[in-house]
Design a binder for these strands. Sequence first.
DNA 1: AACGTCGTTTCAACTATTGAAACGCCTTCG
DNA 2: CGAAGGCGTTTCAATAGTTGAAACGACGTT
Lengths: 261, 261
Amino acid sequence: MTTAGVDPDADRGPARTADRALRVLLAFRQRPEWGVSDLARALGLDKANIHRLLTTLAGRGFVLADPDTRRYRLGPAIAVLARAAERGGALEAAARPYLAELAHDLDESAILNVPHGAAYRCTLAVDAAGPVRYSATVGETIPLHGGAAGHAIFAFYPAETVRHLLDGALPKFNDRTVVDVDDLFTRYARVRADGVAISHGEYDPNVTSVAAPLFAAGQVVGSLVVIGPQDRMSAKVDTVVDRVRAAAERLSRLLDGVPTP
Amino acid sequence: MTTAGVDPDADRGPARTADRALRVLLAFRQRPEWGVSDLARALGLDKANIHRLLTTLAGRGFVLADPDTRRYRLGPAIAVLARAAERGGALEAAARPYLAELAHDLDESAILNVPHGAAYRCTLAVDAAGPVRYSATVGETIPLHGGAAGHAIFAFYPAETVRHLLDGALPKFNDRTVVDVDDLFTRYARVRADGVAISHGEYDPNVTSVAAPLFAAGQVVGSLVVIGPQDRMSAKVDTVVDRVRAAAERLSRLLDGVPTP
DNA sequence: AACGTCGTTTCAACTATTGAAACGCCTTCG
DNA sequence: CGAAGGCGTTTCAATAGTTGAAACGACGTT
């Protein structure tokens, strides 16, 4: 299979030691548990070097060594940082102008969503100006199968992960909600092909939404959605699709400062 | 002492550069946005040094610079890592033997819970051996006010944060559920004083649970709970309290390899 | 216009980092 | 049962990355 060997782009940039420590952290995306030698081989670095880095990371709680097996896992500091990022993260700050631009130009509400376990959450919204508009509830959490914003996120999750998240039945919000798992995956294939998800009232009835995924470091980190009354949206859906997709792509490009190997 | 009075938490450990990079990351707990000079002062390091470290962190997506304000926020890589830690994290791995020991010795089910937005989630469970037992659903998400496990976590959140999380009404699971916000905070004060939370059927009726908080780096990262039928638990509640509290303290000590300043 | 602050760049001195090698310790293999 | 090979850890001299003061240009304020 793929068991990736040495990362192509080795130590680049100014602070080599720090960069290597970050590469060590990122290695835990591929495997939850690493031994020193194992990790050294995977990153193409020396055993002693990795040992030192892991010790340092452990000293701040970024990784934790099992005292028995002597193998390392991601530590509690990650969760702590994630909590800090949830509110003050760059994603929200970076997305704000994009949402504002979309909302203004398209005259519909624009929302930023991020995955949240088996659901997604609206973390930032800029409502349209007019009197008739979709008014988003910041903080609202919606099950992953409930609407275009969710499709745009979870279509880019590994299928196995999605299946694991979907352990119960899918609640039906109205007669348009996708509740069959196979239908959901068919839908996802379409979303991946198109680069956007379009929902006609799957979650809120009489509402059309267009969503595009946001990527960072090669992974989905959220979605951008423009949403409004079905009749008004239909007239301009092509424009909306183009704009949402373009905005998401630009924002994604902003988000990965560099491809994280 | 011999050295100058200010010796707060200097660079300790072997990999100084990497350690400093981690300290930079952890600084974002205190403030969501930092400028270079600001951060340099806060950490007692040189401007140029911080600049280099931030650039390196940005190169891997751990922080992101706002191109206009030139200030930095936590980046998308944090969320990516957090997702990896959610499944393969050290907390779950480290807690397993403790849960097993509690479940075995006390003859009741033992569960690990972690905060999850405005709720908490059961991520690991070891059921009691007998035929009559509480059988936990791994993956289940319960609103923060629903049971001892939640109290043990959110009692140690900043009150302001809890208020912010509780934007809607509190659903009532049964007639014992705490639904008044002031009652909840009174309850939290008690939990902080005792070091454990005890619930008699607040979420599931006829079930008593005893929960103790887990700390890492000075922050709550989860809770350990022992849970079982009300009548059977009543007879041994004192023992259970002692054991759960002790287990949580030992596990917490294991989790902070070192106080993260 | 002068000042202060910001982020960035530069550069020589330094020292922390590096990686090969050796070390115990363990399990596995012959 | 001894050898062999794996593991994580420690050691150490040479190297090379890091360090921090200083200088820079840009911006905003006084």
